[in-house]
Design a binder for these strands. Structure first.
Lengths: 344, 344
DNA sequence: TCGTCGGGCTGAAACGTGTCAAGGTTATCC
DNA sequence: GGATAACCTTGACACGTTTCAGCCCGACGA
């Protein structure tokens, strides 16, 4: 049933010109005479010709696609980032191959193989771990690489990130100022740099306030998801009340929502009994049972900027200067941490 | 800097065999002698050879990618569907090109062009409107098409959907039984079939209960988003209290969350003053300010099944029977609609 | 009239792979 | 020992583009 595929050659003969001319109409319309051009265009639409990108790519060396590898599609943070990427690439007529590593480095690796076989122009990636050795190899083979939501340690690769340490500081300073002296940090897996940085920022704020590091107790989670958050909350509630944290800072909003669910289920009031601060300020944070305080990141701009950086390098590789863009996060205080704690 | 691209030919000479043999090692390893095979594999890893999928695709006619076109990436419903798709395709070594039509049919059309140029094996799509004329053309050119979350009217195209009318019925029956006699339906744009079906189902349940159709009042929204939900809620609250609905049924959870936010902001209690039922049962529904009653759909299975249907057809086009899979939704009652209304 | 110039167009050569008929080698059987 | 079969391997062609050297032809200047 699939009618015979129509190629540039069919168009050529229908229009009474050579294949070269058809190709020119497609790629450099200005150098072909108007009358010829119209004849070709007519033939194209008459035959319903659709250029074969594989052939073009084969000839040109690289294609019109780019890969986006994120840690979790189900996390609204990343879907917003993806939207930003799409904005920038759609305008440039590029296709995005969306890959979900799920925080699993084997899966990440498989996807990178796939992208390499596709000869993508470049890869925008939030790597699972720091071992970017694989990414360096990619670059050497001519695949552009931009780190997403992760600061590059190497000067020869672009990155777009948000200052996670600062974010951690903002959250923790807020809690300390409200009088909290036993605070839990919920986040993980620890191998994620974002988690570590946010925690380190929090510790820094603690020191700054002249408090002991033990003020902050860490609860590591196997994944940054709602379910893991619920689990962490029940661990926190397992402690005797006198030793229990009076505030919880979560490495992202999914965790925070999970914590909130479990606290509520166990009749612990937020923020009266335990205050709560999340991270990312996803749209659902504001709609939560108790509207969630959170550290806001410019999610969409993150994606846009990363894509733009890659497109810039693709269009003018010669005098492209690798950049490390760092955005600043912003604390949004809502119900979940609003009331100051009376010390005790 | 990008080292010279290494092709199958380089591998062949390095291993001392012909290119045909290398190709065989890659595609039908069983027909080549073990010793030769090992020699070739050694050469491959030594040279760091990565097959060029564009060339393969050019030769074979169709590639290893498939397109997924959804209405809104930011909607957790679709990200869960996408996860299902990914499960099924990842196992088959396929790449997914993720496209976001944003409910805009021009954007949808642009993406279909792109996918056609990529010579994708097939397209999984939740179309913006019913004018699937474009999709029929796609099929005629040999691109597999599976409708996603939309029932196919044509017998010659697969579809995977959930019975939206039934979903609407379930929700409405629940509200009617709780005693509500002035109910609002919030959903839109009306052009989306899902929205219409859910509404029709609701109307059906009304008739079934012997109630007048005017019992249900429709509020159309420009998009099925949180913001649109807030807006609809303030329209509902604009009515005098005596004429105002005592329950709201929303075409999806994003709308419901928006409605909930605005009701809360205007000090209207849920469910005491107004009961609320959403649709999709996204994870955030249970975590909302007031846990949301919702109609649950098997999101991930939806995606999995659609992808599987397409793979089946791709692998054995001859005796593939087009299917119309229809799942059944399920009502999940939570806080937001729990208390029966005392009539009046 | 001849030479030169340049805009438009042509035609063939790649790009990297899959496929397939044909060839070559070795084992098997009478 | 020769025929047959079984098994591997080869080499050339095709896939649909882009690119580029070169051709044709009309215009222009001398």
């Amino acid at each position: 049933m699939p009618g015979p595929a129509v190629s540039i050659r069919d168009v050529a003969s229908q229009a009474g010109v050579s294949v070269g001319t058809v190709s020119n109409v497609l790629n450099r319309p200005d150098i072909v005479a108007a009358s010829t051009r119209n004849r070709v265009l007519a033939a194209i639409s008459e035959l319903g010709f659709v250029p074969n990108d594989a052939a073009r790519q084969l000839r040109r060396g690289r294609g019109r696609t780019l890969g986006l590898v994120v840690l979790d599609v189900a996390n609204p943070f990343f879907t917003d980032v993806a939207k930003g990427v799409e904005d920038a690439t759609g305008a440039a007529g590029m296709a995005v191959i969306f890959c979900n590593s799920d925080g699993d480095s084997a899966k990440e690796s498989r996807y990178l193989d796939l992208l390499e076989e596709q000869r993508v122009q470049g890869v925008l990636i939030t790597p699972v771990d720091d071992a970017n050795e694989r990414l360096v190899r990619l670059r050497e083979r001519g695949v552009l690489v931009v780190l997403l939501d992760r600061r590059s340690t190497r000067p020869d690769v672009c990155s777009v990130s948000v200052d996670d340490r600062l974010g951690g500081e903002l959250a923790m300073r807020h809690l300390v100022e409200a009088g909290h002296r036993r605070i839990a940090f919920v986040g993980g897996p620890w191998r994620l740099e974002q988690v570590r940085d946010r925690c380190h920022g929090a510790v820094h704020a603690l020191r700054e306030a002249g408090l002991a590091e033990e003020t902050l107790r860490r609860f590591e989670t196997p994944s940054p998801t709602v379910a893991a958050g619920r689990d962490a909350a029940s661990r926190i509630l397992g402690l005797p009340r006198s030793a229990r944290a009076t505030a919880v800072f979560c490495a992202n909003d999914l965790l925070a929502l999970g914590v909130l669910q479990e606290l509520t289920r166990q009749q612990v009031r937020v923020p009266e009994d335990i205050a709560l601060v999340g991270y990312d300020d996803i749209d659902f944070a504001a709609a939560a049972a108790v509207p969630l305080s959170s550290v806001r990141q410019p999610r969409q701009r993150l994606g846009q900027t990363a894509a733009q950086l890659m497109l810039d390098e693709a269009n003018d590789p010669e005098n492209h200067r690798h950049k490390q863009v760092i955005f600043e996060p912003e604390l949004v205080v809502r119900e979940s941490s609003r009331y100051a704690r009376t010390p005790g």
